[in-house]
Design a protein around this nucleic acid. Structure first.
Lengths: 195, 195, 195, 195
DNA sequence: TATGAATGAGTGTTCATTCAT
DNA sequence: AATGAATGAACACTCATTCAT
């Protein structure tokens, strides 16, 4: 029962992720998602308020998964510098593991007006907050410049990660693989922040 | 004649920019743009292939304007480091001068599937190419690390600029003004690249 | 068992009457009726064929109740004239006693296409037949005009009663109370029929 | 131009009247109306706000036509009694001339929730007002009873007319023709009102 | 009897685009 | 070049009804 329900919801989330990644948010039809999830159109509305809500739940599901691991991953790095490296590595290994999911989050999410205008991604703020915390920690321990603004830097790093991710997802011409991407960006920010 | 035509096309571009920025790409109606430009609905199709094309032409118009100045602006900086600073400053001063325009380019453009999937922004590549050229120049003159990949770094910088821009456009709570943003990001990348 | 069943059916009829009167036939949801009757959605279909059938059964239930009393009530009037007065009075006192029920019968019933097109309200014909019988009786005893058509008059009276009822239900601005309505209409028809 | 537009709007009104009468308001599809009017679906929305609006405009169109003539028709009757006769006759001759139109007005109109709940049929009130004016006139000249309430009587008469009309429209078993109906009802009310 | 999760048919309305003038 | 009336494809969502339990 609960089992079947969870099954169904997950099947819909999966089907939606695939469909959104392939067709884009707007061109993805509810009936196509239903078909792929092997449920009736109406069933989708037992688990989701509307089309935008599917996207938002994909996002939340993703952030939750990601968040579970990221703190542990970051903790493994001893110094703040190493922690930043871990954060970046973790991002790209997630991209590598769930490219479709990341594609939807990074590209299609912006097409949902509900998401862009009404939804406040609280958990995502927590996630990004890890970065500014790292910077503050590094500044406290003297390894990072005092004059670097943690908020701006956090945002800048996130921009770098997602832009490079989009490029990689779009081209798939891995002249540079994701490992390289990660090391390059981590190095850039670590040196950029060093006191 | 040509005069009136140019007039009309520009009026449409302006009206579209305003409307896209205010309502978003999808909620902006062609008839609303026509009304604001004081032309008939059909007239728009004498100058633009379709709704997406308006967006693309706004983008090209923007890049052209931006490109005209950017090379001169960058040239003013003597060293590669200073040139990067000029590039970033130029970006944010443009954001400051044409916020509506930048908002459309940075946010609404991603809503057009034509743009995201079919259009190859050649001129924009030229524009971004300035950055990788700068890095290569800096590496040649020994001020930048040889192991920094110019392509990845270029993309990372662009990601930082646009992400911070989006944040600034959305919040308008200038806890940090754009000047500060620019200096922060420039410093980050210059130090990050330094040999 | 039978006890509980009757209970349940009656609870559904009551809940439906309330819901139909409040929301109208089309805006009343089966699930809302089920919620109010404290049964499961599916249970309703053990007692009723479909949504229209609920309405029809409300109607029949009403007519049965009404019919039980009306003959006695009419019988109390000695002369045909007085009997018409009793009929009209009885109608309005029912409106007064069960306004919700009457509202559903008089207004919402017309929204059901099943009712309007397929259902033949046999019992209701019996009910209205009382009027034409009265008229014939009056004609036989010489108090009513021979040239009044009992069928047309019956229909006309019914139209008057329901139209005035609708007005009263809609406005509730009792500039005239129901008593007055009844006396006015009875007087009109008695004089109109008098030989 | 204006010519074509009027044409088109009238064609839609006609097609809608026919379709509503045949299928009922709810079962009438916009696309079916468009097909019958030989216009595109979207064209309907250039002339009408929505489906309910079509019905409302049919109603207004009808009342306007009816109102134009009714005052003249009533004026022809010399005495108040004769005027009531004219009013009733006029009603049934309209039913005879435009049965489809009357069917929509009398039966289908009640299915539109917009009409029943939001629209206030001002012109229709004027139309019915003719009746209460007649009664008051008759009371002033002493031919009608002083104790007959003009408002209730007006409403009662309207109920009689529409109920008998519905019966006639539904059965078409003209055991009594409309002429007879008119004379019967007129006689009933004239006698019923007589001082 | 009773449940309630699942179904899936069904449609009014919008709006980018066209084309006769 | 300019118009703007006309087009018609396209689709998320609801809710009465069913049926496995």
């Amino acid at each position: 029962m609960t089992n079947r329900s969870l099954d169904k919801k997950e099947r819909i989330l999966e089907a939606a992720t695939r469909t959104f990644a392939e067709k884009g948010f707007f061109n993805a039809k509810i009936s196509e998602i239903a078909r792929q999830a092997e449920v009736a159109d109406g069933t989708i509305y037992l688990y989701f308020k509307n089309k935008d809500d599917i996207l938002i739940q994909i996002f939340e599901y993703m952030v939750e998964r990601h968040l579970e691991n990221i703190r542990q991953a970051v903790a493994k790095g001893g110094s703040p510098e190493e922690k930043i490296r871990m954060f970046v590595r973790h991002h790209f290994s997630t991209v590598e593991k769930f490219p479709k999911l990341v594609e939807v989050i990074t590209i299609e999410l912006r097409q949902s007006s509900k998401f862009m205008k009404e939804y406040v991604p609280k958990k995502f703020f927590n996630y990004l907050g890890i970065v500014s915390d790292l910077i503050i920690e590094g500044q406290a321990s003297g390894v990072f410049r005092e004059d670097a603004d943690p908020e701006i830097t956090k945002q800048a790093l996130w921009g770098s990660l997602s832009e490079v991710t989009v490029l990689w997802l779009k081209t798939r011409k891995k002249r540079f693989d994701l490992q390289t991407c990660g090391e390059q960006i981590a190095e850039l920010y670590i040196r950029g922040l060093r006191a």
